[in-house]
Nucleic acid binder design. Structure first.
Lengths: 291, 291
DNA sequence: CGGGTCTTTGATTAGGTTCAATAAGAGTGG
DNA sequence: CCACTCTTATTGAACCTAATCAAAGACCCG
């Protein structure tokens, strides 16, 4: 699969000179078949950053590459030269710690940028693995920063995106440092819900693309704890869960959850919650708990 | 103290036009009294990044500001416009989580850059507090990036430093997600040792500048656990600890420590370690445990 | 259909937190 | 300079959360 990547990469290298001028011609093809190239405007939209007004003079085309589930986009130690943007699909990024265990760092999806960790050491310190079929946009870092030099607004955005990622990691540290297992799992579900919602999908029902083990690694928990916590949330009606299928019933409770009531009182609590939802006169967000 | 900062900041605003040209004049003063300004070359050296060869055309001066222990360099929510570099002294950066608890994110010291988290939201998401008297270099972000535009090597370094910080946070996440309390404390000590060593101080004996509570917050542990772990390390001879004074006796053991032997066997282990250190024919680093 | 991976659930254990009490410093003001 | 207070650090005991070990069921894919 690494070979496949290199082949695609080679395609970029050979075609980019040809395509960068007659990008308009390629554009027509995009509409019909699989989209193989994006311009700077599309890249900026995807990243949700302000886009340089004058795109005309920089019709550089960013190549798309398709990956199948299980394939690696980049590996640890591989020389850095690209950033990557998810156009569609789901991935995980992982580090390998000194004892050989893999630690999940993020679950990139549409609009997310990854590969930033490679800038400093000129070598990726993490690897990115497709969890589904993915359409990934290749962003040659040198080219990106040179575009930034001619488009100050883009430059600002690049710094901004990197800062955003840093803040994300800090929030992660804070969560791992202070929240209970239940709170972590709850936040994780809320975060997924928000992201799916932002992508235009349902923020109430979705399928997990990752295993319990991967979720556990991401949250600093064991897979059993993740599974048990899902079951507990299900039991008290916060969510409905069946294997990978999740339905969020009470997102506001998940948002603020810090600790679950002791299991003795759970049936009581569940009953109360159900009553709450049914009799609901006031509450804004309290859909019934039925799956 | 916030007022004091503002005053200093105003000094920068009014004097920078004057000083940017006759920097040579100011240079003389540096040598004698407290250093109040640094040029780009010094900033780059401090950050351990490659420095643009041609510094001549950019004799912009970066102002220094002094802070006393307990003072805040920036606060959460304050509008972002500066990055900060530690020239001397020790600090902590903290986030406040939703329940109002403070989470320590880092302990910046000489050569460290902080404030990056403010770039994205144009507002700092963390606050930086001096743990000792500090000499801090103000780096106006706009000025810094514009210097980056004319010095490509600097631009690369800015991206590099931001990437380095991201990798640091990822390593932190990995640590919090997978290591035991003892291993975390051990790594923390090793990290301090390495940093003190890199600064030219002893990497064996040093004083902690932060409380057990702050260490615990940083490592995702309670202050009691930190204290107990220090005591345990002391007991088996890995370190000698007396309040804030630390002496590292076996750094290689600390580097690789994953879990301590059960306390029953500790006296035995300590004896063995002592014997090891005393009889040591082979071991490279195993100084006696006397404090 | 069978082998493999993933998930659920139970029983037990252990690591770390919590609560509490004491001690040691650091700073302040008489 | 000493007494007093406040913060910080140490240590113990009980409790509890989440990990570990184990087994069985669900799902997927060849």
């Amino acid at each position: 699969m690494q070979i496949e990547y290199k082949q695609e990469n080679t395609v970029l290298a050979t075609q980019q000179n040809i395509v960068s001028q007659p990008a308009r011609a390629a554009e027509a093809a995009w509409q019909r078949s699989a989209k193989l190239w994006s311009n700077l405007t599309e890249v900026c939209e995807l990243l949700r950053i302000s886009c340089p007004g004058a795109t005309l003079d920089s019709d550089f085309a960013f190549q798309h590459v398709q990956f199948k589930s299980g394939q690696r986009i980049h590996t640890i130690g591989q020389p850095f030269d690209m950033l990557y943007i998810v156009n569609s699909g789901f991935l995980k990024t992982v580090m390998i710690d000194e004892s050989g265990n893999e630690q999940v760092l993020s679950f990139p999806m549409k609009g997310d940028l990854f590969g930033i960790d490679g800038i400093h050491s000129r070598t990726y310190t993490s690897e990115a693995v497709a969890l589904s079929s993915c359409d990934i946009i290749l962003v040659p870092f040198k080219k990106f920063t040179s575009l930034g030099r001619s488009h100050p607004e883009l430059e600002t955005s690049i710094y901004s995106v990197m800062s955003r990622e840093l803040v994300r990691e800090q929030a992660m540290v804070s969560m791992l440092g202070s929240l209970s297992a239940e709170a972590r799992v709850a936040r994780f579900l809320v975060s997924l819900s928000d992201r799916f919602g932002a992508m235009g999908y349902s923020n109430k029902e979705f399928n997990l693309r990752m295993t319990r083990h991967e979720i556990g690694s991401y949250l600093g928990l064991t897979l059993e704890t993740v599974s048990r916590t899902f079951s507990a949330f299900n039991e008290i009606g916060l969510i409905s869960v069946d294997q990978r299928a999740i339905c969020i019933n009470d997102i506001s409770a998940l948002r603020t959850l810090r600790r679950l009531p002791p299991s003795r009182s759970r049936t009581k609590a569940a009953a109360a919650a159900a009553a709450n939802a049914a009799a609901a006169a006031a509450p804004v967000a309290a859909p019934a708990a039925g799956a």
